[in-house]
Computed example of a mutant assay.
Amino acid sequence: MTSTLDTMPKIGAPATRALNDAGYTTLRQLAGVSRAELAKLHGVGPKALGIIQSALEQHNLSLDQG
């Protein structure tokens, strides 16, 4: 799985919608964001968080674990 920082990874429609509604439209914007903050968004669950984390790690980035 390769990703670019300018697009979101494939995480499912509900999670994508929740992130877009919260103003996150690119993977780059999620670097350093708290996992807990994202988990509060309706539709963003453990699977989506794992996919996002894996995509960020391809660029030596990560979500904040707080």
Results as ranks from 00 to 15, higher is better:
A22Q: 02
P14M: 07
L19P: 12
A18M: 01
Q53W: 10
G43T: 04
G12M: 08
L49K: 00
S3K: 09
L61T: 03
V33F: 09
A13G: 11
L63N: 04
T4N: 05
T25A: 10
R17V: 11
T26F: 11
D6C: 05
T16W: 14
A48E: 08
T16P: 11
V33M: 06
D21I: 02
K40A: 11
L41A: 04
D64E: 13
E57G: 03
A36R: 06
T7C: 07
L41V: 02
T7P: 02
T16Q: 13
T26A: 12
S3W: 13
T7E: 09
Q29W: 11
L5G: 01
A55L: 12
K10Q: 13
A31R: 15
H59M: 02
A18T: 04
T2N: 05
G32K: 07
S34C: 05
M1F: 15
K40V: 01
V33R: 06
G12K: 03
L56A: 06
G23W: 15
S3D: 07
G50C: 04
L56P: 14
L41D: 03
L5M: 12
H42N: 00
G12P: 03
A18L: 01
A55G: 11
S54T: 13
G50H: 04
Q65L: 02
A22F: 05
G23Y: 15
P14E: 01
L5Y: 08
H59P: 04
S34L: 07
M8V: 06
G50K: 02
T25S: 08
K10F: 14
R28V: 05
A22Y: 02
K10H: 12
G32H: 05
L5A: 02
M1Y: 15
S62K: 03
L38K: 05
P14L: 08
N20Y: 09
P46Y: 06
Q53G: 04
S34G: 08
V44C: 03
I51Q: 10
L61S: 01
K40R: 06
S34R: 09
T26S: 12
A39S: 04
T16R: 14
T4D: 07
L38I: 13
I51N: 07
L56H: 01
H59D: 00
A39L: 09
S62A: 11
Q65Y: 03
M8L: 14
Q58H: 08
A18C: 06
A31E: 11
G66I: 13
L41T: 00
H59S: 05
M1P: 07
T2W: 14
L5F: 03
G23P: 06
M8C: 00
Q65C: 02
L30K: 04
H42Q: 02
